[in-house]
Write a protein that binds this DNA or RNA. Structure first.
Length: 486
RNA sequence: GUCCCCAUCGACUAACGGUCAGGUCAUCACCCUUUCAAGGUGGUAAUGCGGGUUCGACUCCCGCUGGGGACACCA
């Protein structure tokens, strides 16, 4: 069969899109692109109570930011739409009616209380909580009685007898699921709303999905979906169940660690390429050495048979490293534009931030040392404020520095007289002055840094001085000289 | 409780049944150096346990332990 590969990501809009969904989406997208297939975005919003339009927007914005383009979806349509479960209700209900008519499903009038009582009884006997099938063989009189009491029926799938359900998983291999674990499960609630496992089975079929690639928390749902398809005469897709992503504490990903929304990663200053690269390597590997992949390389080299089975821990430290790599070696214009925006947001009110050329020089100086774009704000602050904002440690070290006053005076002289005002000339002047004062080079440099930046660490001092400019440096040296000594 | 899945350095992972168990992040040391990063060099560090099968097991089989998931009128 040379059928076109069709895969999908089907998040439910009940929260912001988090890392686990993104990784599942990524693997689907990569697989589709690699196979020349179709990537579909579907919105699983059968849970009307918790679903919200803004979350759907968040999902789309997240994928867009990452460059994961979909070929069919709720916003762009496609030949097999609609792609939102809430718009497919009549489809689900029609299928349920058909199963009912064929005796493959039945109505159940049990109340929540009755079911709960039955479950508790089972728990007391230390048995699995199962539906006892009591509504399977009701008489017409029973049904009429329930209806007259105003009870509403749910629709249950009639679980057929048979051998274990086989999931021939592309990642796990052959998995056998005994039917004993399954129930006559609900497919339509008593309020008329169809249930996820039922909808999903129909969606895969209607959207002509060929490969369902999803988290392995769905592995045990798979038999239900396959049984529904079987009852409807549908050939099931291939399945590939991905290992889970765990938090740093090895627990399931949740708020706190990596489960924040992807857009938050963007806001913190992670580059989409870095996030994509990092996520791709969570559960997949190309070989025994390659770590850095551009999106194009990922699309060209991804394959399901190199996806592992063991769950992976989301290690933000490595993401940080990778992001640093992309900031240093990535697309310069885009990164600079982003950094300009962040500087404007952080220091826009300050006059120096309005000087585009000056901002460009600041960025050139700091970009190399960033791990996230967001760090530019605090790191660049001293370039924009008129008055130095002192770090406690810088102030303390300057105050305790031997011959501090003398050194500051000497540095002031250098800054005043050096021409041209370049890093090279400044460094030469510093070296000469250190020599003549009988000081080590660094004994002159450190106090100069404290006084002109208010910090103990930062970019190359002479480059920083050049960017700051002679006047700012002189003003700062003058005010540093007035600080009380230790 | 029942069923299903999983198990290599702290983390991500590589290894046709035969490698000295390799790479990356982190960590440590050293180098570079005006500080912090970056960069360079080197080091520490793993096959959960117990049985098999085999000339030979990280790799295949069984058990145990540990972790995760499912058993809903959630998705």
């Amino acid at each position: 069969m040379a059928d076109t590969v069709r895969v999908r990501i089907a998040p439910s809009p009940t929260g912001t899109l988090h890392i686990g969904n993104v990784r599942a989406g990524l693997f689907n997208w990569l697989f589709a692109r690699r196979m020349g297939g179709v990537f579909i975005l579907r919105i699983d919003d059968t849970d009307a109570a918790r679903s919200k339009p803004e979350y759907e927007e968040n999902i789309k914005a997240s994928f867009r930011w990452l460059g994961m383009d979909w070929d069919e979806g709720p916003d762009i349509g496609g030949p097999f739409g609609p792609y939102r479960q809430s718009e497919r209700m009549d489809r689900y209900l029609t299928a349920a009616e058909r199963l009912l008519a064929e005796g493959k499903a039945f109505r159940c009038w049990c109340t929540a209380e009755e079911l709960e009582a039955s479950r508790q009884a089972a728990a007391r006997r230390k048995e699995a909580p199962r539906y006892d099938g009591r509504c399977l063989n009701l008489t017409d009189a029973d049904r009429a009685k329930f209806e007259s009491e105003g009870r509403k029926a749910a629709i249950r799938f009639r679980l057929p007898e048979g051998p274990p359900v086989i999931v021939d998983d592309l990642i796990r291999g052959r998995v056998e699921m005994p039917r004993g674990m399954l129930d006559h499960f609900i497919i339509v609630r008593s309020d008329g709303k169809p249930v996820y496992n039922f909808c999903t089975a129909l969606d895969e079929a209607d959207h002509r999905i060929t490969h369902v690639i999803r988290g392995d928390d769905h592995l045990s749902n798979t038999p239900k979906q396959m049984l529904v398809m079987e009852a409807l005469g549908i050939t099931p897709p291939r399945y590939a169940h991905l290992p889970q992503i765990l938090g740093i504490d090895k627990a399931r990903l949740s708020k706190r660690h990596g489960a924040q929304g992807v857009l938050e990663l963007r806001d913190e200053g992670f580059l989409p390429e870095a996030v994509l690269n990092f996520l791709a390597l969570l559960g997949w590997s190309y070989d025994d050495k390659t770590e850095l992949f551009t999106p194009a390389e990922l699309k060209a080299s991804f394959s399901l048979d190199r996806v592992g089975k063991a769950p992976a821990v989301f290690d933000e430290t490595k993401l940080l490293w990778m992001n640093g790599q992309y900031i240093r070696n990535g697309p310069a214009e885009r990164i600079e534009a982003d950094l300009r925006a962040r500087i404007a947001a952080a220091h826009g009110a300050l006059p120096a931030a309005g000087d585009a050329a000056y901002v460009g020089r600041v960025i050139a100086l700091l970009r190399e040392s960033l791990k996230t774009l967001g760090e530019i704000g605090p790191l660049s602050e001293f370039f924009f404020r008129d008055e130095v904002v002192w770090e406690d440690e810088a102030k303390a070290r300057l105050a305790g520095w031997p011959r501090a006053a003398e050194i500051l005076a000497a540095v002031t002289g250098i800054v005043k007289d050096t021409s041209p005002f370049t890093p090279e000339a400044l460094e030469a002047a510093f070296r000469a002055k250190a020599e003549s004062m009988g000081l080590k080079f660094k004994e002159l440099v450190h106090p100069a840094r404290f006084a002109t930046t208010g910090r103990v660490a930062g970019p190359s001092l002479f480059h920083a001085l050049e960017v700051l400019g002679r006047d700012r440096c002189l003003a700062r040296l003058a005010s540093a000289a007035k600080l009380p000594p230790a």
